[in-house]
Design a protein around this nucleic acid. Structure first.
Lengths: 258, 258
DNA sequence: TAGTGGTCTAGACCACGGC
DNA sequence: CCGTGGTCTAGACCACTAT
């Protein structure tokens, strides 16, 4: 056999979904029915089902059946990579401006993930200060994004207010700009990875489905000496959210061309 | 049993790898040995192995054995969202500038995915022109990125050269700027989703692991009338790649503050 | 030829939710 | 109680490769 049976079955089901024969939300045949239909054992049919679950195409719940997922691929909320300001201070996401904290934000000392420690320019074993919060649209009880803010300990020593529960009007960014008397510069990085247990629980994502991680770096350069003052990591369902930004022309790509 | 046996076995192996007992590149026990060791059937041991392959932790080759993968977890290649230009034309990724096409690029008419059709401003059932290619570092035989370029049919009618195999110096972007006599403006969007079969096969990603999709929109506005001329979708392993860009200040966030 | 990963089956069993 | 997804087994078989 060129193509294994379990893959053949998975392909057939996937094709049916993509052709629209199985509509989003529709209940699917049972595993046993799929096995009979394609002339394979129940275990093989189940294996095909497992791949489709891993791909995020269907959901399967014990004793309740399998359903075609209705994926909100159409309604991607697009984040816009520009920093704005209103009376409350800087914000980065116009579509999430009215979102509220879900549950109680936490703060305390912790060891940051390796890549965050590297970007923060502290040792990987070094303790940093972290603020955690879950955000969601007003009225919602489940979070849409998990945000963690990491601060280096030297900044808390130099500017203790950034570690307090109440950081005052404009938050830590205003305190930092007031203290250093220079503008903060931000840059962002996006990557994806499978959701971990915390994200599955708090964001209601399917196990193993991807989350998008937006890592934002805040730096100041008083007197030309650049210092990273904060790393913010925001995690969200990769399926529901997309991040957008303009592409800038380098000098080599100036218009009109020579 | 709270924890299924196949998961227990997978956890044990994963832990051994993460503790460093199994070093990257080391050959692992055979499936049969794992089955005996953990007191499960060969099929169950194999199932544990499948999850680890899907997670990208190990590789398995028929009749040659299973090996611990050495993953570039730390060395994410960071794309830089700026358009540059060299003697060959515009390019978007300095780290991928010397990459070459793997296999033969294809081109032809197709129906684009819904969100691409929307961005291209054509009907969802409408046929568009597509160019597909797999790219990878020089010398490599497996692709690192899959790139698909979608063009609206009206553009091929107005400017037939963009549908040819050879589009001339500077490629379609130079042809488009020459034709409309205005600069192209690009914007990008990033999202993630589980890999599909094509990506699993061509990119060597584990089944169900996330891919990062960078959707780039090219538009021109001759005489102020904005027209979308191309959508490019580039897919890559979300584990190996991250996308970076600067955050820009909106006028409301000007510094110094009022 | 022997050993490897990989596939497949038939049938047993389990946990859970709805009836 | 029954039907559901999900687990597990023992054993057969296959394709490939190193020897």
């Amino acid at each position: 056999m060129a193509e294994p049976a379990h893959r053949r079955v998975a392909d057939a089901i996937r094709a049916a979904i993509e052709r629209g024969e199985l509509e989003p939300g529709a209940r699917m045949s049972t595993v046993q029915q799929l096995a009979d239909l394609h002339g394979v054992s129940k275990e093989t049919a189940h294996r095909a089902v497992r791949s489709l679950v891993a791909e995020g195409l269907i959901t399967a719940t014990r004793s309740r059946g399998m359903y075609v997922r209705n994926r909100p691929r159409e309604r991607v909320i697009v984040r816009d990579r520009t920093v704005y300001r209103d009376e409350l201070g800087y914000f980065f996401d116009r579509s999430a401006q009215d979102w509220r904290a879900i549950g109680t934000p936490t703060r305390g000392q912790t060891v940051a993930p390796a890549h965050v420690a590297d970007m923060l320019e502290v040792g990987r074993e070094e303790v940093v200060f972290a603020r955690d919060r879950a955000m969601g649209p007003p009225g919602s009880t489940t979070a849409s994004q998990l945000s963690t803010s990491y601060l280096p300990m030297w900044l808390l020593t130099e500017l203790p207010v950034v570690g307090k529960a109440q950081t005052g009007s404009g938050g830590i960014y205003d305190r930092i700009e007031e203290h250093f008397q220079v503008p903060i510069e931000w840059s962002e990085m996006v990557y994806g990875r499978p959701a971990n247990d915390e994200e599955v629980a708090k964001l209601g994502i399917g196990e193993g489905l991807p989350v998008l991680v937006v890592t934002r770096l805040a730096a100041v350069a008083p007197g030309g000496r650049r210092q990273v003052v904060e790393i913010n990591e925001t995690r969200m369902s990769a399926e529901e959210f997309a991040v957008a930004y303009p592409v800038q022309r380098d000098a080599s790509a100036a218009w009109p061309r020579a």
